[in-house]
């Protein structure tokens, strides 16, 4: 599985990352290294800081962040705006994708792709080429083309929202895709579709940070590394067997140490 990917260059390097919001410290010294082409899975109980980690990686400004090192492809993330991070290749599939009335999915995608291309010094994509490409990619998530012309996430079902995120990922072709509980709320078919999409996008140039509450996604996506996040820290790292251990025994063993902080913060993780 992880034979050749693990030899890729260092993509994301995090040392002693802390983050707080509204006076509540949520991340308390995260250490994580991720190389090009690797798939890392982060599992953890509710409130452990999983979503905070994804938001902090994407550059949400509502967190105060400190770290000894926080770099992506050689850039110090601390000085980068969310759009700069996106243009450098960080993509976040949101846990709760927001509705944008009146803005069609295809329009957002076109604006996004062209912003990224501009950053790379490339010309905007020809409108016809763009449409052809998007129509090809939409097959990946098994949705009709009509979906492209609907307003972003408006009146989408839970499953449609998640598929839309995967479609956007497929079109924007990031170096690092962060999937924030993209699997939650999906039935088995949708889950398989999601995993299929991810697997097809896997390659030496693309890494994944898959945040999940459940082990079941790992039946379809084979990870290189699994980390347990509890109480704002990586409590344990390992391979696929770690996920199976969680499946058998739950997070209880990891939660005990982190209980103290959990009480006050609502939905931090």
């Amino acid at each position: 599985m992880s034979d050749k990917q693990t030899s890729g260059d260092m993509l994301l390097k995090i040392r002693n990352l802390s983050a707080e919001t509204g006076g509540v410290r949520i991340l308390k010294g995260i250490n994580l290294e991720l190389r090009a082409g690797e798939v890392h899975v982060i599992m953890g109980p509710n409130g452990s800081g999983k979503s905070t980690l994804s938001q902090v990686l994407a550059g949400r400004d509502s967190y105060q962040v400190s770290a000894d090192e926080f770099s992506f492809a050689g850039h110090d993330l601390r000085g980068m705006s969310p759009e700069e991070r996106a243009r450098e290749g960080i993509f976040l599939a949101f846990q709760y994708p927001v509705e944008i009335p009146g803005v069609s999915t295809v329009n957002l995608l076109k604006e996004s792709l062209n912003a990224i291309r501009k950053h790379r010094g490339e010309q905007p994509m020809d409108a016809m080429d763009f449409l052809t490409m998007v129509k090809k990619k939409i097959k990946l998530v098994d949705m009709s083309e009509e979906f492209l012309y609907r307003s972003v996430n408006e009146a989408f079902s839970g499953g449609e929202k998640k598929r839309s995120e995967i479609l956007q990922m497929a079109v924007l072709e990031p170096c690092l895709a962060i999937l924030d509980e993209t699997d939650s709320g999906l039935d088995v078919d949708a889950l398989r579709l999601l995993a299929d999409g991810v697997n097809r996008l896997r390659g030496p140039g693309r890494s994944f940070l898959v945040i999940t509450h459940y082990q079941r996604l790992l039946e379809y996506i084979e990870p290189d590394h699994v980390h347990i996040l509890a109480g704002g820290r990586i409590a344990k790292s390992g391979g696929r067997e770690l996920a199976l251990e969680i499946e058998r025994e739950g997070f209880a063993a990891y939660e005990r140490g982190a209980d103290a902080k959990k009480a006050g913060s609502s939905r931090a993780g």
């Binding site: 994407a58 949400r60 969310p82 759009e83 996106a86 993509f91 996004s112 792709l113 950053h119 924007l172």
Partner: peptide
């Protein structure tokens, strides 16, 4: 934030 995460300026 959603749009910026997709690469758009504010």
């Amino acid at each position: 934030f959603y749009c910026m995460q997709r690469g758009l300026s504010r």
